[in-house]
Design a binder for these strands. Sequence first.
DNA 1: GTCCCGGACA
DNA 2: TGTCCGGGAC
Length: 366
Amino acid sequence: MPWPASADLLALLAPWFERVKRDLPWRAQGLDAPHPDPYAVLVSELMLQQTQVATVIPYFTRWMDQFPDAQALAEADEDAIHKAWEGLGYYRRARFLKAAAASVAAEGWPGDLEGLAGLPGLGPYTAAAVGSIAFQWPVPALDGNAFRVLARLLLIEGDPKAQAADLRAWLAPALATHGPSRMTQALMELGAMVCGPTPHCAACPLSGRCGAHLEQRTADIPPVAKRAVPKASALWLVAVEAQGRLLLHPPVAKGLLAGLWRWPTLNVTEFPPQAADQSPASLRAWPGWTQVYTHRREAVNPLHLCLDTDFEAAEGLRWVPMSELHALPLGKRDQRLRDLLATPGQAPLEAPEAAALIRACAAPSA
DNA sequence: GTCCCGGACA
DNA sequence: TGTCCGGGAC
C-alpha cells in the first residue's frame, strides 16, 4: 500500500486527544504506564461492545462496586450478574465476562494478544483494546469507529474491514511511537466525537491530511453496509396473576433474552383478538409498542389477567410471588410490562379469549 | 414513530 | 450468514 507512515500521519491525534479526552470512570490518569486495574478495562470493554459510552457509565460504576475484582466476579452467582446487567442488552456478554474473570482469577492475565483473544467474549477488537489500554502492548484495536476513521484518512474504497490485517500492520508503529493506550483511545474517541457517520471536519486534527476530506468524499467513504430486514411478528405479552403470584418463564441458557426471566407471550395469529364484551372484567391492557431486536420486530400488546384461583403452570412456567418480581433480571420489553402493572390500565377493546390464554399457560390436565 | 448504529460467535 | 439488544438522531 502507498499509505504514508502511520506515526507521522497520526502525529496530531495524540495531542488532540490529551486536550479533549473525556474523564471516564475506567480511564487511567496517565496514559504512558500500564493501567493500574486491567479488570476495570476488561469490564468497560465488554460493556462498550455495541453500546455507547453514556449508557455504560452508570452500569460500570455499579458493577465495580458490586464486583470489585476478577475474584469477586468469578464467585458471583449468575442471577446477580444478570440483575446488574439488566437493561444493557446482549446479556451473554455478562456471562462471558464472568467466565473471563474466572480464568483470570485462576490462571492470571494472559501474556499476549492470542491469550487475551482466547478469553470468552473477547474477539479481535476487544482483545487488542484490552492489550493496548491495560497492558500497553502495541496491538491496534479496530472497531467500527476506527475503521471509519482509517477508511476516510487513507481514502479506502469499499469495505475497510476487508483490509483489517493490512490496517493493523500499518497502524502498529503509530502505537509504538505515540503510546498504545493513548493511540487506541484517541482513534476511537475521534470516531465517536468528530469522525462520525456525519463528520465534523472543522474540528478534526487530521483534516489537513485526510484523503476523504480533501477529495470531498466523506459522505460516501466508508460505504454503508446493507442490513437484513427484520422479521415482523405480533404478540400478547401477558402477566397472569393469581393469589399474589405471577406466572413467568425462568431463564433459559440460549436464544433470545437468555439468562433473563420473561413474561409468557402468545402469538397474535394463534390467539386472535376477540370482541371486547367477551373479556372478563379482570383483564387490563395498555397501549402497545414495537420492540426491535437485531433481526426481529415485535408488535407487543401488554395484558394483565387477574384470576381468583391459580392453576398448575405449564412446563417452563413458574409462579413467582409478586414481592420477588423486582429482584428478577428482565429485558427491557419485560421490564416495561412489570412497570405498567403499577399503573392504571384499561379494559381492552380487543384481547385473546381468556380461557384460551389460561389453557396456553396451564399444564395439560389429566 | 422510523432509521441507523455496533463485536462475538456458531 | 444469522443470531444475539438497546439507544440515539431525526
